[in-house]
Design a protein around this nucleic acid. Structure first.
Length: 205
DNA sequence: GTCATGATGATCT
DNA sequence: GATCATCATGACA
């Protein structure tokens, strides 16, 4: 069925930002940080939205980039928490992670989808799309929409151009298996905002 | 709606 | 040479 293409209006409630998340927030287990990022607002140069989908990658996890040890690509994951780890995916896209836990623990949360709330016109221009549901509904899409590239690799998340604001209310969170991986594909380390129209894929029910 | 496929480059064997 | 933490497109139902 061809649904009429109606761009979703930004949720006015989502625009009420909580305080900035500081490095201390990220200095905890990825399994604690990942679900708490759902509902937070990620901005890059003032453009972004509400985080509606993330995945946790722990250094003991065969699917994590850090699993095989430190390399030039994943070096930021081995550094202190509260910094951005950006890598190229499939030779084409950029993906952004937030480094968690402690220096050397090499654990991170992949930001997979946003509900666009800030700078939506800029995102539409970069992506060449109107439908807000498609602007940031995937890890490669959201970096394109926000203008995040390898230049952001290693930048602190609590200073410009990044800002992540704490959520105001406790969201209804769904969990499920992660997307697009072959190793450890059964770990339920994908977290999402239940019922969101801005997910990269629906959660299995 | 589902499914298959090509693009494209760093990393690793 | 194979493997990717992906996306857009086009065939088909």
């Amino acid at each position: 069925m061809a649904r009429p293409r109606v761009p979703a209006a930004p949720d006015p409630a989502a625009a009420r930002l909580g305080p900035l998340l500081t490095r201390r927030f990220f200095a905890r287990s990825v399994h604690a940080v990942a679900p708490e990022l759902i509902g937070a607002t990620l901005l890059f140069e003032g453009v972004g939205g509400v985080i509606v989908e993330v995945e946790a990658y722990h250094h003991t996890d065969p699917a994590a980039h850090s699993y095989g040890g430190q390399t030039p690509r994943n070096a930021v994951m081995f550094g202190p928490p509260g910094f951005a780890y950006v890598y190229r995916s499939y030779g084409i896209h950029w993906c952004v992670n937030v480094v968690c836990e402690a220096e050397g623990s090499a654990s991170a949360v992949l930001i997979r989808a946003l509900e666009p709330t800030h700078g939506v016109d800029a995102m539409r221009a970069r992506r060449g799309l109107d439908d807000a549901r498609l602007l940031c509904s995937g890890p490669g899409k959201l970096t394109h929409a926000l203008g995040i590239t390898i230049a952001a690799n290693g930048l602190p998340l609590d200073l410009a151009p990044f800002a992540i604001h704490r959520r105001r209310a406790e969201p209804d969170i769904v969990t499920g298996p992660r997307i697009g991986i072959t190793k450890a594909a059964d770990y339920p380390w994908r977290f999402g905002l239940r019922g969101s129209k801005f997910l990269s894929k629906p959660f299995p029910r």
